[in-house]
Amino acid sequence: MTDNNRICPVEALEVLRAHRTEEVVVTTMGTSREWMRLSAHPLDFNYVPSSMGQATSLGLGVALAQPNRKVVVCNGDGSMLMNLGTLVTITAQAPANYTLILFENGAYEVTGAQGTPGSETVRGPGRAIDYADIARGCGFESVFQFDTLDDWRSNIANALNAAGPTFVWLKVALIPGSEGPKSPGPSPERATRFAAALQSGS
């Protein structure tokens, strides 16, 4: 089911890594699996194990507690749909330091690439959900949509520096046969280390 017209998610994350400075980066599901291979920054929080859909909410809490830090949440579309109300919760709080990057591949990748209810696979040609419209309707201050890696690479600085809360929709390809992310270590200890990193210098 690889779609060569879509952005490779690993390359999209490599672009993020190249531009990342001191932002908090929260990943989950497939983005965690790949981010763990790319980055080991104290302000990374690979939300594995997760309660599916809740990375956006956890990132919101961090952004509210740490208004002087930029928070980037990397979410999948299956997770997004599982907690769509979070978009309204986020914009009600309107944290200027919050960026949500949606890695949309139209499928529950780690369970065998079954289509999400938002995907063209399930809904039919031309009927896929428009996440940019949703984000605008929910009141995100800045909304971006990137269909190619070059566009993402050329505009990531604009996206990360835009007035937040910011929503970025990346149309990414499935990674066939990919598995779910494995926990990178004991969860309580990782949470404690992350909290210490967050609160240092705050």
């Binding site: 809740q54 809490g61 919760t89 949470a191």
Partner: peptide, 26 residues
């Protein structure tokens, strides 16, 4: 005191966790 109004209760725990990890007391 800040009130964080969420849309569904499942959000409350991770939002509060993010706040707590960031040094707040929710």
């Amino acid at each position: 005191l800040e009130v964080v109004r969420v849309c569904r209760e499942g959000e409350t725990w991770p939002v509060a966790a993010g706040l707590a990890l960031g040094g707040a007391t929710p």
